[in-house]
Design a binder for these strands. Structure first.
Length: 485
RNA sequence: GGCCCUAUCGUCUAAGGGUUUAGGACGUGGCCCUCUCAAGGCCAAAAUACGGGUUCGAAUCCCGUUAGGGCUACCA
């Protein structure tokens, strides 16, 4: 069957992909995949003053990293291109002119300074802030003459002077606006670029967009868009306005109150699986108690009907937990592949792939973020440079030195250096001294890793290998004897 | 200021008029397990913003208040 659903993610390239943007993109993506529709990426770069070099590439890279593959976009033509608004300028001009021709829009020659002053005055007098429609009644013939004379101008849409408009939003239900509170919105700026409102309507129409799924900040401009659809005689898409993502203090999620760029989370060692899972759950739930989802499961379960209405705070604690869960579930080889560059970047000498995987397998259940691995695993790759002070005080004394010496002898006798033999040896030596095995384990862990906490000691020893283990215990004994606590 | 949206544990949320002593998860506290740390298991504290209706019955429907948010640009 031919697919009919077409949705788009339409960001402005102002720098990086925001986590709120990621969620919008994700919901669009999930909806498209769930309905066997198309997911389209469109770049909304109509504000020349906010252009940021490399932002588009960065956006695309992050989107792909997160696993949101689009069917059509700037670098993937689907016959509805171009997918960058600055390359569609002729279209906007043409349709803006058509609206003027029809009498649904007009040329406006008001200078920014006058508008600024108007706003200021309205604000002081506590009036509704809106354009006073000074140019609305200039005859088109006269306006054209002024344009020919080189006068700067914009094109504004005509809002009906009275009446109201009601529309249905999939998430919010029926919403009504009085025309009287709407402004004669600028559609085409004096630099020939369209404003968002004109461009979004024209592009969504010509790209065959069936469902507009975007942030709630757009809800109040819906009447303007719907009016444009009516002026053009086009069928408007289904609308779904998503609740906003919030800072811990309930203001709109922003920089300065923590990271908002997806790439920052990526750099801090969060898995794409965890981030996707997490933002999916911010405003949507499957209707039961499940919380851990793969992308495929999200695609299967996602519906707009289960999207909530209220804003959600971006809570890092839950993300940490999800990241931990996804790390534990990840295949060791894949995880090792992700971890390797992080460790390499710190200049830590890696050993064989086999050795590295063994370490990853042992430590993966202890990681909250990937970057934790660097410090958790360091002693597997290089000699510990220091021993934790508290550990020395707690676990190392002259008695220990004596016990370790005996243990060292016993260990050096071992032919196979695996958990069962190690366990038996420790038990045996502990019994010989009449102490608990813990009395040996803790000092040895400190000797081998320099730390008080870590994975199971026998597993650790198995990976480190006999030679390294004996060497490090010997070194610890010497250290204790030099400066006994 | 005006318009619009929203309102259940600290946080994410379930419950779509009776199945509810309002369920789950994160986080927090306790216990168990245990060589440490995690993980895991068990337990606990923790919410329907407030006030009116409608109804035999309201977290759920209506109105108001309050609070928060969004919009109010030749930004998106």
């Amino acid at each position: 069957m031919e697919s009919i659903v077409r949705v788009r993610f339409a960001p402005s390239p102002t720098g990086y992909l925001h986590v709120g943007g990621l969620r919008t993109a994700l919901y669009n993506y999930l909806f498209a995949r769930h309905t066997n529709g198309k997911f389209i990426l469109r770049i909304e770069d109509t504000d020349q003053s906010r252009k940021v070099e490399g932002a588009v590439e960065n956006l695309i890279e992050t989107l792909k990293w997160a696993g949101l593959e689009y069917d059509e976009g700037p670098d993937r033509d689907g016959g509805y291109g171009p997918y960058v608004q600055s390359q569609r300028l002729h279209l906007y001009r043409q349709y803006a002119d058509q609206l003027v021709e029809q009498g649904d829009a007009y040329y406006c020659f008001c200078m920014p300074e006058r508008l600024e002053e108007l706003r200021k005055r309205q604000q002081e007098q506590k009036q509704t802030i809106a354009y006073d429609r000074a140019c609305r009644n200039i005859p088109v013939v006269e306006a054209r003459k002024r344009i020919e004379n080189g006068e700067k101008h914009v094109i504004r849409m005509k809002i009906p002077l009275e009446g109201s408009l009601t529309f249905t939003d999939v998430i919010r239900g029926d919403v009504t606006f009085q025309y009287s509170v709407l402004d004669d919105q600028v559609l085409l700026k004096s630099d020939g670029f369209p404003t968002y409102h004109l461009a979004v309507v024209i592009d969504d129409h010509f790209m065959g967009i069936t469902h507009v799924i975007r942030g709630e900040e757009w809800l109040s401009s819906v009447p303007k868009h719907l009016l444009l659809y009516r002026y053009f005689g086009w069928q408007p898409p289904v609308l779904a306005h998503l609740p906003l993502l919030l800072n811990p203090d309930r203001t709109k999620l922003s920089k300065r109150q923590g990271d908002v760029a997806v790439e920052d989370y990526r750099a801090r060692g969060y898995l794409k699986e965890a981030i996707v899972n997490f933002v999916a759950l911010l405003g949507w739930n499957p209707g039961d108690d499940r919380e851990l989802f793969t992308m495929d499961e999200l695609i299967r379960e996602f519906t707009l009907e289960r999207v909530g209405k209220s804003g959600a705070i971006f809570n890092i604690e839950k993300l940490n937990w999800l990241n931990q869960q996804h790390i534990r579930r990840k295949d060791t080889k894949e995880l090792a592949h992700l971890l390797k560059p992080i460790v390499e970047m710190k200049g830590i000498p890696l050993k064989s792939d086999e050795y590295f995987c063994a370490v990853v397998d042992l430590l993966k259940e202890k990681l909250t973020v990937l970057n934790d691995f660097v410090e958790y695993s360091r002693y597997f790759f290089e000699e510990p440079s220091t021993y934790e002070q508290e550990g020395i005080a707690k676990h190392w004394d002259t008695d220990t030195a004596h016990r370790l010496t005996v243990l060292l002898d016993a260990l050096s006798e071992l032919d196979t250096f695996t958990k069962p033999e190690l366990e038996a040896t420790f038990k045996h030596v502990a019994e010989h001294f009449g102490v608990k095995v813990a009395k040996l384990i803790h000092p040895v862990r400190l000797a081998l890793s320099g730390r008080q906490v870590g994975p199971g000691l026998y597993e650790m020893m198995e990976i480190l290998g006999k030679t390294t283990v004996l060497k490090r215990i010997q070194r610890a004994i010497e250290r204790i004897q030099v400066s006994p606590m």
